[in-house]
Amino acid sequence: MYPPKPESTYPPATATGVPVSSADQYYAPSGPAAFQVYSQAPGPWSTGLCECFDDCSNCLITCFCPCITFGQIAEIVDKGSTSCGASGALYALIMWVTGCGCLYSCFYRSKLRAQYSLQESPCNDCLVHCCCETCALCQEYRELKRRGFDMVIGWHANMEKRGHGQGATVPPGIQGGMSR
């Protein structure tokens, strides 16, 4: 569409000695034609993988019915585009058919990490979910809770609570029928 600019018009890249993957980079325009690459290093999780004692009630719910916790996480991570019930039901179906709910839930861990720039620790997302599904779900639940989400009320109620839903316009009132 547009001819490429010669390499000499781009600012030289600075070497930091720290390898940066493409998932950790974002582009911010610094002028009409040039773009610079900034690196945002992933931060740590607010709690460890096995720190389930912070929220014993969620730990028990996740142990006996992980589809509930997963549904709550999925609704927040998807920003309300999927409901808690639909995500939880799909998780339960996958768990019932394959016996491995981690096939579905590991993708939500990746989405959560990308949204909040969290480290991929202690290992790969799918491996964390395959080896310790309940601990991974509990950690994700605690992370969202510590970021200010009330996990019980869902995405839309959280947005209203934070004041994002107050800017709605009210339609004008309808007057009574025709009059002479």
Rank of each mutant, 00 (worst) to 15 (best):
T16Y: 15
S57H: 15
A89E: 03
L137E: 06
A114K: 09
C59G: 00
C126R: 02
R162Q: 14
S22T: 10
C132S: 12
Q36P: 03
V77E: 05
G99E: 09
V152F: 12
F70R: 04
V37I: 12
L144M: 10
Y26T: 15
I76D: 02
P32Y: 10
A23R: 10
Y27R: 13
G101F: 01
D24P: 00
V77K: 02
A28G: 03
E75D: 11
S87F: 05
M95S: 15
A15F: 14
L118Y: 05
N158G: 00
S22M: 10
S179M: 12
P172Y: 03
F70I: 02
C84Q: 09
A28T: 08
T134Y: 07
K161H: 12
Q25W: 08
K79L: 08
Q119F: 02
T134Q: 13
G17T: 06
V77T: 08
S81L: 08
G71L: 07
V128I: 11
M159P: 09
I68L: 13
F149E: 04
G80S: 03
Y141D: 01
G85R: 15
G71N: 09
S21L: 14
Y38M: 10
K145Q: 12
V170D: 04
I76P: 07
S179N: 10
H156T: 12
V128G: 05
S30C: 14
T16M: 14
Y104G: 07
C63Q: 15
D54N: 14
I61F: 09
S57F: 14
G48H: 06
I76H: 05
Q166T: 04
C123H: 06
S83V: 03
Y91V: 04
Q175A: 13
F35P: 02
P29K: 15
P122S: 06
S83N: 00
V18P: 00
R109H: 04
F64T: 09
D54P: 02
G71K: 06
E7L: 04
Y26I: 11
W155P: 09
Q139I: 00
P3A: 09
S81R: 14
C131I: 12
Y116V: 06
Q40K: 09
P3I: 07
S81H: 10
R147M: 04
K111V: 03
L93R: 06
S87W: 05
G163Y: 01
A34T: 15
G88A: 05
F107V: 13
G88P: 00
F107R: 11
T134P: 05
G80H: 02
A15Q: 15
P122N: 02
